[in-house]
Amino acid sequence: MRRIISVLMENEPGALSRVVGLFSQRGYNIETLTVAPTEDATLSRLTLTTIGDDHKIEQITKHLNRLVDVVKLVDLTEGAHIERELMMVKVKASGAQRAEVKRCVDIFRGQIIDVTATVYTIQITGASDKLDAFLQAVGEAAILEVVRSGVSGIGRGEKVLSL
């Protein structure tokens, strides 16, 4: 099962490599990974998605917790949560294609953020499956380049992951 693990950790050199190293060292896989400092500059928020059964995920969270740089973590998929991913796509847009691509962008509530005579650069945010669906709708033949940020997530309601 796909899980989103969100980690609050010390914003220090080497902290990220410890987290990433743990995954390769123990044979766990990372599907996506995003990391950036929080409002408190001494802390970073890292979100990763991984696939595993309950036993594996329990081991992953225990081992992450064992890292001295990790302050707190939560498996967002255990409760109600919101996940978002940002994607930028360059697609061929000339002739009749141009209008078709524009319509598709509107349907997926994306924005065209850069334009040339033959190319649209599109930005779309949403859950990962929405981004997958957009790519499918546009069609592989039209796609020139895809950049995805990886999943970020936050719990719904009053629950917060903070110090």
């Binding site: 050199p13 080497g14 490599s17 410890r18 190293g21 060292q25 001295v68 740089d69």
Partner: peptide, 14 residues
């Protein structure tokens, strides 16, 4: 050294 020893230490400092 911090990199090489990373998987076999409890923690490390540079």
């Amino acid at each position: 050294m911090v990199g090489i020893s990373r998987p076999i230490v409890k923690h490390s400092f540079l």
